[in-house]
Amino acid sequence: MAPAGPSTPTRIRVAVAPYLAVSTRAFRQFATYRGATFAGVVTNTMFGFIYAFVFRAVHDEVGMVGRFTATDTTTFVFAAQGFLLMTGAFGDRDISDRIRTGDIAADLYRPVDFQLWWLAHDHGKAAFHALARGIPPFAIGLVVLGLPFPGSPAAWLAFIPATVLGVTIAFAIRFLANLSGFWLLDVRGVVALVGIVQLLLAGHIVPLYFMPDRIQAIVRATPFAGITAHPVEILLGARWGGELLAIYAGQIAWLLILLGAGRALLGRARRNLVIQGG
């Protein structure tokens, strides 16, 4: 071996470059849909207000729910609306569409890791949605309803890694749902079902702390709770110390399981895959 090979930092840069490129392109791709972004913000904000008023009416009757006040719940609702697109809660069929058309064959031939490639794509998209679809409904809700800016600096610091983990868990679940396209002709039903389960269990239809204790314990153990509910509760300052560590641990454990399952399923599909035509 010649000693003049590329240095380790260069090698890392070369290895990471394609994924970084995919991320930035995905970000820019979504940044071009300005009309759609504006329309989406209007809709998310509207839903935020409807839910916020309804849940506030519950707080009016019973005071605090668990350890959460009416202000917490309102903040939760607008944050959760902001999480919707970032965590792909309405599902996507990017991968399964390519399976259906056969374009997947080209994807599998690329000298990059298939799962990491799509993860990079998803993170680029999520970064755009965090800025364009996440912050506006949240900001509008807080300003219109005159709520205090939530979270201490420490809470924001704890919130950010939990959010990145949540976005990645959501990706890992959608990756699995999309791969079902290798076996099913029509994945739309599967994707829609996974989407609605996510909406309910991640806390978009109702905050998890409104659920009866026993059901809540089960829901919180699912990977979906780590997508939206847990990060937002961290932001509200409701999860510290042991609870915070338990949330991180649960998120990481589910992430490893789900990404691992995705890899295993992809390996299986790759072995069975027959590309037609030529």
Partner: peptide, 25 residues
């Protein structure tokens, strides 16, 4: 089937609220 499940979940949201309170407004 998916559409039925989606809509049943939709009502679960309301039912959950009423586990905390007797009345809404």
């Amino acid at each position: 089937f998916a559409s039925l499940v989606i809509n049943v979940f939709d009502f679960v949201g309301i039912a959950v609220l009423f586990t905390k309170t007797e009345t809404l407004g």
